[in-house]
Design a protein around this nucleic acid. Structure first.
Lengths: 237, 237
DNA sequence: TTCTGAAAAAATATCGAAATAAGATTGACA
DNA sequence: TGTCAATCTTATTTCGATATTTTTTCAGAA
């Protein structure tokens, strides 16, 4: 339970958000209000309030008098989100490299080393990762990318970045569940980290773009594979 | 009453949003639930749902168990919003100029001409504009800027642009209420329109940046003047 | 006077049920 | 057999009342 769970609506919002981002609530699935109220042990009021807030995060969609659904995923949207995220994230990183002080450098380094500790003994095989280790990696990956841009000095840019990171994470989780081993993702993180520490903004942004593009490509393959299996089409409908 | 007002929560959301953006509900003011429920003639449930959605639009802020406030305006945030908006808007305009077809050109032209019809006989004096004429100008200005980027081919970019436009509009309304006459805003719109029709993306984006920067500068002056009057400080607190 | 703390007042948050709307089913009729 | 309309079922939306938390008030002591 997070510290800012002052109300049931807050707690429910966070729980639902987590369950949507990590895929426990499937993309596109109907959110039946009575069922959710039971599952999360709350009444209608906090539940609907949480869902309304999730609409703003683009994680839930609704149609008047017909209810709520988990926002669907599609190949088209994956491309869209990836491109816009690259735009925002490179702008923020560029600003952070310009503005970041020594304290920022320490935070980035700490986040990178925590992430490196997990990534250095990731399997290159196609074995599925134990869920606990995957959650650790997700948390540290999120923290590393957040630390990089934290000195951007633009609350709005950070807000948009967070929104887009969350969207990307939903897609990435899809691919992690069908992944055929880990690519050299650690090398990519290291390249971004090194360029950032050298205050080489141009290179850091290029490496970030490459990193995001490769991640998107991996997700795209995974989604295409899923589409064959279960008739999921996604975009260009 | 909009066509998509299928529920009371929808209608209340739209009404509240309008009242916040045009300043009828003052920035920073407390939103007392019972009072609002009376004013908008709804119960707690649709009201709270509307407020939760407005938090996602960054128009309302809340603190658990202490209620809701209209999101405050500040000089710092004005600069932040303006810069990020320039980034997003130029990216979208660039894409639209690349992708836009003949139908898009027609829509942009129609929107520009509707706007021009209002702007061409705006007073250069410091007289306050009649409210009705101001609303017409706001609507056509919004439509023109929306039409420009409508062919960007990126739903996410458009969503972020809409969010930022709405934020900018709140600030602009402040300056329109204390404005000392209209600057050559029509010339700026025409410059953007001409460059866009010539498919000169570089120039169109430059003109857009200039347009946004000048608007922000005007708002900044107006807010500084207000700060003197009523002790409003805004940012760098 | 100024601080403290308990009690009252005011406001927010939540519940549970009633009202309302959408979707599914059945049966009459062509 | 196919279509349409009335009805039944299911789910969403909304209200009114209650529970909970915060804020204000005010008496009493330092």
């Amino acid at each position: 339970m997070s510290s800012s769970d002052k109300t049931l609506a807050d707690r429910t919002y966070r729980q639902l958000r987590g369950d949507i981002v990590n895929g426990r609530l499937a993309a596109g699935s109907k959110l039946k209000l009575e069922g959710l109220a039971q599952d999360y042990a709350v009444g209608m009021s906090p539940l609907r309030e949480a869902l309304a807030r999730l609409m703003g995060d683009l994680l839930v969609v609704s149609e008047g008098q017909r209810g709520f659904w988990v926002a669907p995923l599609s190949l088209d949207e994956l491309d869209d989100v990836s491109r816009v995220r690259a735009l925002i994230e490179t702008e923020a990183l560029n600003a952070a490299i310009r503005n970041g002080d020594a304290e920022w450098e320490r935070e980035v380094t700490a986040a990178f080393e925590a992430l490196a500790a997990v990534e250095e003994h990731l399997p290159h095989t196609s074995d599925a990762l134990p869920p606990e280790q995957l959650e650790t990696w997700e948390a540290r990956n999120r923290a590393f990318h957040a630390a990089l841009v934290s000195a951007a000095g633009s609350p709005m840019l950070i807000k948009l970045r967070d929104l887009l990171y969350q969207q990307s994470e939903r897609y990435r989780r899809v691919s992690l569940n069908v992944s055929r081993g880990w690519r050299n993702v650690h090398d990519e993180h290291r390249a971004i980290y090194d360029a950032t520490m050298q205050r080489n903004a141009l290179r850091a942004c290029r490496m970030t773009e490459l990193h995001l593009a490769r991640t998107a490509q991996e997700v795209r393959k995974a989604m295409a594979a899923l589409a064959q299996d279960d008739g999921f089409t996604g975009g260009k409908a």
